[in-house]
Amino acid sequence: MTGSKKKAPKLSPISQLQGVLLVLDNRSGRPTAEMLANVREMVGDALAVMQEPDPTKQKIAFVLLAIQQSTEVVVRVVRNKELTRVTVIDQPLYHWALREIHALAGAA
Rank of each mutant, 00 (worst) to 15 (best):
L93H: 04
E100M: 04
G19F: 02
R85S: 15
G29C: 04
V78L: 14
H102Q: 15
P31M: 11
L24E: 04
V39R: 05
L83A: 11
V20T: 06
T71K: 06
Q91W: 07
T71F: 01
K59Q: 12
V63S: 05
I67H: 00
L64V: 09
G19L: 01
L65P: 05
T56G: 02
K59D: 10
A97S: 10
T32W: 03
I60E: 13
M42S: 09
S4V: 11
I101D: 02
V73A: 08
N26W: 01
L98F: 14
S15Q: 15
R99L: 08
F62M: 13
A46P: 00
M1D: 14
V49K: 01
R79A: 14
G29W: 03
L47V: 00
D45L: 10
R76T: 10
Q18E: 10
L47A: 02
A103L: 10
P9V: 11
W96D: 08
M35D: 15
H95W: 07
L64Y: 02
T71Y: 00
L83G: 00
R99N: 15
E100D: 06
G106F: 02
V63W: 00
M1T: 14
K5C: 14
G19M: 01
F62I: 11
D54F: 04
M1R: 15
T32E: 02
Q58C: 09
P92R: 10
R99V: 06
K7D: 12
L47E: 02
L36K: 07
T32V: 00
V86T: 15
K10L: 13
A33M: 08
M35C: 13
L17P: 00
L64W: 02
I101F: 13
N26I: 03
K7I: 07
L47G: 00
L65F: 01
K6L: 12
A97H: 04
D25V: 05
M50F: 03
Q16P: 04
R27Y: 05
H95V: 11
V63F: 01
L47Y: 00
Y94Q: 08
E41Q: 14
E34W: 04
P53L: 04
R76C: 05
D90C: 10
K57N: 05
